[in-house]
Amino acid sequence: MPPQRKSWFLIQVYRLDRRLFWLLLIFVAGQSFFIYKGVETVPFFHWGMYSSAYPAKTEYHTTGLAVDDSLIRIDQLKEIPPGYLQSILDRYALLNQQAFHDPILDVIHHRLGSFPAFETFAISRLTDPPNSPQRFEEWLCKYLGRNEGVASGTIKLVDCRYAWDSTRFTLINYSVIDSFHCTR
């Protein structure tokens, strides 16, 4: 038999399994569409992590927690995965700074504004309820309470400003975003 020329994978699939070929084609089209849009919709993942520009700065901000005017080292809280707590605190700080106007409200209105009844339903399911600040306080106190010596008293959510001095980050100052009163 003469040697057969290798053909593209999708052509192979087309010859062997027509239904799978169309499914793969739909997946490729979906992935291309979401790459073009620059957003993610599972299972069309976006692999552009760390690809946006990081300009040089003189100040670096992070959200932190303070008790009695001293900062808590979030990365040393044993009962809480530090990355998760940091993301949750960042999310609360963002909502707080925007007077709890979730940025997703604008997206919901843009997408569903023509269907007022469905928009109201979507808002109730896709955004946090109005009492979320109180519930967040309860959750934070309970969660921090699992760590020895952290949870009692007033806990402040703070925006910390740091400067890089070639050996480490030094704290310039911090401003209070919100305060929580935790009792054991």
Partner: peptide
């Protein structure tokens, strides 16, 4: 993504990513 967004060509890009990534660890002794 890094090439087409141009971030791969920014000389300070990796240095700044590292600062942002390790801010908590590098704010302690």
């Amino acid at each position: 993504w890094k090439l087409f967004r141009g971030s791969a060509f920014l000389p300070q890009q990796m240095s700044e990513i590292l600062k942002s990534q390790h801010l908590a660890e590098l704010s302690e002794p």
